Computed example of a mutant assay.
Amino acid sequence: MPTMPKSLFWTRTDTAGSEHAVLDDRQGFAAQGVALAVDPIPYTCRYRLAVGADGVTSRLEVETEGAGWSRSVRLERAGDGWRVRTGEEGDLDAALRAVGHPPAGLPGTDEPERLAEALDVDLGGSPLFNTLPVRRIGLTRAPADQARQVAVAWVLVPGLAVVPAEQVYTSLGPGRIRFASGNFTADLDVDPDGFVVRYPGLAERVGPR
């Protein structure tokens, strides 16, 4: 695999954890990363992402693992929809129940047709994935107060269930973007390339910028 020219690192502010991504955004967008967190249970998440020159995601592969379990999901664009493949070993739900957390259910989705309108993907707990719709719709160059609604395939972590979600991104002026999904909102600080610098209540970027 070719080397990646960019490296981004975030530390989680909602729990003990971090994320490191290496990426190449010179033609399209390719990234691979590792995220670590202890909530709801300690886990490692590895992902590989491919986005076309038009800004539309073409493939996402995610693997999660913890004590006594591992899971994987692969989303690949196929025609006007998505093909979803999954793998599972061990018993994640038993590990979650042991700490009083609701079970995660099965990875993936039984209804991939519900993802048909999604041009972007979102990986739970990862500030990198907010960059995808921001760059695709050119929001860093948009006038203040311009809002855009997007449909995403949302991958929940650590269980890797995939659900359709509607999100709204609003330009707040240079370096500021409001993210909203359902009743949740957060005002993100982003750099000129659309990468998150600070996501209140989730993560902050550290290291060279």
Rank of each mutant, 00 (worst) to 15 (best):
G87A: 15
G105S: 05
S7I: 09
A142P: 10
L172K: 15
N130G: 04
P133C: 08
L106D: 05
L172G: 05
T57P: 03
T13I: 10
I177F: 09
V206R: 14
P174Y: 11
V157R: 09
L60K: 01
V196P: 06
A161E: 04
V121L: 07
L49F: 02
N183W: 07
L36Y: 12
Q149V: 09
L96T: 06
L60T: 00
Q167W: 01
V190S: 06
A30Q: 09
G66S: 12
G28Q: 10
R26D: 13
S58M: 06
L188T: 10
R85C: 00
R46P: 02
F184V: 08
A142H: 14
A67C: 08
R46D: 04
G79Q: 09
G207F: 07
P192A: 12
D110H: 07
W69C: 03
A151P: 02
E111D: 12
G175K: 15
A50S: 12
L8D: 13
E76R: 06
T140S: 06
E65M: 13
L49N: 01
F9D: 07
G207T: 05
P133I: 02
R71K: 07
R48D: 14
L106C: 02
R77H: 03
T13R: 15
S181D: 03
G138S: 02
R209P: 00
G17Y: 01
V56A: 08
A94Y: 04
P127G: 05
A53G: 03
E63K: 10
V155W: 06
R12M: 12
N183Y: 05
T13Y: 11
A161N: 05
M4Y: 14
G201K: 14
A153I: 01
A98V: 10
G81F: 01
N183F: 06
V163C: 05
G100V: 05
P192I: 06
E166K: 12
F129M: 07
L92I: 13
